[in-house]
């Protein structure tokens, strides 16, 4: 037996392909097995350790809290509000980022002039603005939306500007020599060239934006899943806090896998210049 086999490295796929039960186990059971192990260990730890429920609620407590939140309608309302804040923030951030990026990149001199400022604002994490926003606007949903929009917009500006500047000028000239105007250049050359990096930027920004959403909701202290997580612990309902965290994780994975990733992949397939883009 070789050393690598002892380590249990990936066995050849072909060997397993004809055994349907092995595949069913691998695709259907194994992905859930990890969660089952974690939940079992958590339940055992919670009931055997004797730590008070306030400090260490068990999975069963969390499920009850989740059902309770669902039955009282709090869960649905807060998820709706969080999604509303989040989508508004992402939409504003994406539009502002692309518009600002295109404006800055429209002229080489302007972009040389403004890039250091753009890079500096990019370096300031969105959460750092929150104390200032609180002083300006008080605690409320506008802080949440601005924090999300900021974190989506700032890397996008950077992506759009570098994307536009990396397009060889010869393509634009080709369109112009064929009689196209600025609008045609934008539509036929610039946008297709930058869209994959725009969607990539949106997805990365949306990831950071989701954390910003939860944090801003915690600090704005009014509504949403972040508020649920924060306020429940303050009132000793720790199981609700953990339930809120589970909801947050599920919500983000849902948004990421169902919308953001397919969108990014589609943009790469449609407009991407890389030859291996279609293989995935």
């Amino acid at each position: 037996m070789t050393a690598a086999a002892e380590l249990g490295t990936t066995p050849p796929r072909a060997m397993r392909r004809d055994r349907w039960w092995a595949r069913a186990w691998q695709d259907g059971v194994e992905p859930l097995l990890g969660f089952a192990i974690v939940i079992a260990a958590w339940q055992a730890g919670s009931s055997l350790s004797g730590v008070p429920k306030v400090l260490f609620p068990s999975p069963a407590d969390v499920v009850w809290a989740l059902l309770d939140l669902f039955n009282t309608g709090i869960l649905v309302e807060y998820v709706k509000l969080s999604l509303l804040h989040y989508l508004t923030g992402v939409a504003i951030g994406a539009l502002a980022g692309v518009a600002l990026g295109l404006a800055i990149a429209s002229n080489r001199r302007v972009s040389d002039l403004l890039m250091p400022l753009v890079n500096f604002t990019y370096a300031i994490v969105e959460v750092a603005w929150i104390p200032l926003l609180i002083l300006w606007w008080g605690y409320g949903p506008s802080i949440i939306i601005v924090a999300v929009a900021y974190v989506v917009a700032s890397p996008l500006v950077h992506n759009v500007v570098t994307g536009v500047l990396s397009v060889p000028p010869v393509y634009g000239r080709a369109i112009r020599s064929l009689g196209g105007g600025s609008w045609s250049v934008l539509r036929e050359v610039t946008l297709p060239a930058i869209l994959p990096s725009v969607f990539n930027g949106v997805r990365v920004g949306a990831g950071f934006g989701f954390r910003a959403l939860i944090f801003a909701e915690m600090i704005a202290q009014q509504e949403g899943v972040g508020y649920l997580i924060f306020t429940s612990a303050a009132t000793q309902q720790t199981a609700r806090t953990v339930a809120g965290m589970v909801v947050m994780g599920v919500l983000w994975l849902f948004l990421d896998r169902v919308y953001l990733r397919p969108l990014e992949r589609a943009s790469v397939e449609r407009w991407g210049l890389t030859s291996d883009a279609g293989e995935r």
């Binding site: 691998q26 194994e30 974690v38 924060f230 806090t241 589970v246 947050m248």
Partner: peptide, 25 residues
Amino acid sequence: ARVSRIVMPVAVFLQAVAGIAWAPL
């Protein structure tokens, strides 16, 4: 390979809730 298939979904989930959401706990 098998361990990684089992651990991966848990890692994905925990990574999604990591950080500031743990503040109350």
